[in-house]
Amino acid sequence: MKEKLKAIAKNRMFLVGFLLFFTVVVVAIFAPYIAPHTYDEQNLAMKLAAPSAEYPFGTDQYGRCIFSRVIFGSRIALNVGLTAVIIETLIGVTLGILAGYYGKAVDKVILFVTDATWSIPPIVLAMAIVLMLGPSSQNVAISIAVVSWAQFTKIVRAKVQSLKNLSYIEAARIYGESDTNIILRYILPNLTSTIVILATLALPSAILSTTSMGFLGLGAQQPQPDWGMILSEGIKYIGKAPWISIVPGLAIVWTVLGFNLAGEGVKELLDPRLKV
């Protein structure tokens, strides 16, 4: 335990990343107590107002507090990002285990579907799915998961192929244990660190995809405070009220940077062989 704590203390990348994303998580949880206004509160007399004591980061074209909208928007970014990563992890890991463990026809079919999915530009496929399902944050999460699971499948499949021929797994087969039991008792526990690393590194990408879809108007709809949508609307007023776009842009950078640094740190902590 002490050695693990020492390793964490020495890993500055992880500590900085953890601090950044922990801040975002705290802000999302306590948004109603941090934000001075609700995200949809309008004051038309103060539209496009510059930053002030009442509106720390100014207001938008409807007189809504940008600071409050960005604070509440962290909930959408984290919710959609986490939902997408959970779904893509479940799909990718399940298919990867089946392909790696059973091989033969099962492996060929899953690899074909995986390669086909990987060959389509993710943002194009995600947009097509959202257009079919309808613009909303939930549908964005589904679309991101559907286009992003392939990397999990490829890596997990390779890992399972190296695990299934180990002596203790062969012994389990000889003793008559079922495939399900072998996968759950012996193979899945050995995949834990790999899955955690993949999921941690996939989260910033999912959040970027979320804001990109919001920027295109396919994510959460008005008056929901989606960061991408706020940034997109602010471009119209970039000369008169640049804070509308700058603030959500900085929030996106802060969040993605934090998760990227934390993900790289987790990778080093769980797999020391990857250290340079």
Rank of each mutant, 00 (worst) to 15 (best):
I207T: 05
Y168F: 15
S167A: 13
S205G: 13
I252P: 13
K236G: 04
I195S: 04
L231Q: 15
P225L: 08
I155T: 09
S209Q: 08
A241S: 04
I235K: 15
V256Q: 07
I183V: 13
V160M: 08
I235D: 08
E233Q: 15
L218Q: 13
I246L: 04
E233Y: 08
G249Y: 02
P189D: 00
N190T: 00
S232P: 10
T211H: 00
Q151N: 11
R157K: 15
F152W: 07
I144L: 14
F259W: 15
G219M: 11
K164G: 12
G228K: 14
G249D: 07
P204F: 01
L250W: 02
D179N: 13
V156H: 06
E170P: 11
I187E: 05
G176T: 05
E170V: 08
V160Q: 09
I238S: 09
S178V: 07
V247I: 04
L208N: 08
T180W: 11
S167P: 11
A251K: 02
G249W: 07
V256S: 03
I197C: 00
L191A: 02
Y186C: 01
L191N: 00
I174K: 06
A199S: 15
N190V: 01
P223V: 14
R157D: 05
M213F: 05
I246H: 01
K159S: 06
V256H: 05
V160L: 06
L203Q: 06
W254D: 10
T210Q: 11
I174H: 07
I144R: 04
V256G: 09
M132W: 13
K240P: 01
V160P: 13
I246C: 04
I169W: 01
L133A: 15
A202K: 14
T153R: 00
